[in-house]
Computed example of a mutant assay.
Amino acid sequence: MTRQVPAAPRGGSRGIRPSAHRMRTLQRHGWMSDQHGAWAMMALPPLLGWALSGRLSWFVLLLLVAWAMAFQLFSATCLWVKTPAKRRGRILPALATYGVATAIPGVALLVSRPQLLWWGCAFVPLASCALFLVWQGRERSLAARAASILAGSVMGPVAFSLASADGSPVAVSAHAWAACAIFASYYVGTVPLVRSMIRGRRDPRWSLGATAYHAACTAATAIAWWFAVVSPWCVLAWVALTARAWAMPALSRARKRPLSPRLIGLTEMAWTCLLFATLLLP
Rank of each mutant, 00 (worst) to 15 (best):
M1C: 09
R3L: 13
P6T: 08
A8Y: 02
R10S: 15
R14N: 04
R14D: 07
I16H: 06
A20T: 13
R22G: 01
R24P: 00
T25P: 09
Q27T: 14
W31H: 13
S33N: 00
D34F: 10
H36D: 15
M41H: 04
M41W: 01
M42V: 15
M42Q: 14
L44H: 11
L44I: 15
L47T: 08
L47F: 08
G54R: 06
L56E: 13
V60N: 10
L62W: 08
L63T: 08
L64E: 05
L64N: 09
V65R: 03
A66W: 11
F71W: 11
F71D: 08
F74I: 04
S75L: 10
C78Y: 02
K82C: 05
R87G: 06
R87Y: 12
R87Q: 10
G89I: 13
R90A: 11
I91E: 09
P93Y: 06
P93D: 13
L95F: 12
G99H: 11
G99E: 10
I104K: 12
I104G: 00
G106E: 01
A108L: 15
L109F: 06
W119P: 12
C121H: 15
S128D: 01
L131P: 05
V134R: 00
Q136G: 02
E139S: 03
S141I: 03
S141N: 01
L142H: 13
A144I: 05
A146E: 04
A159D: 13
S161D: 03
S161H: 01
A163M: 14
S164Y: 14
A165V: 09
S168M: 04
S168A: 15
A174M: 10
A176F: 04
I182G: 12
F183T: 01
S185Q: 06
L193W: 15
R195W: 14
G200I: 01
G200T: 09
R201Y: 10
R205N: 08
R205W: 15
R205V: 04
W206R: 07
S207K: 15
A210V: 13
Y213Q: 14
T218N: 02
A219S: 14
A220G: 08
T221H: 03
W225K: 05
S231V: 02
W233V: 08
V235F: 11
L241E: 05
L241W: 08
A243N: 07
A245G: 09
A245D: 06
A245W: 11
A245T: 08
W246S: 15
A247P: 05
A254T: 02
A254W: 00
P258S: 12
P258N: 11
L259D: 03
L259V: 07
R262Q: 12
I264T: 05
M269S: 03
F276V: 04
F276T: 07
T278W: 11
P282F: 09
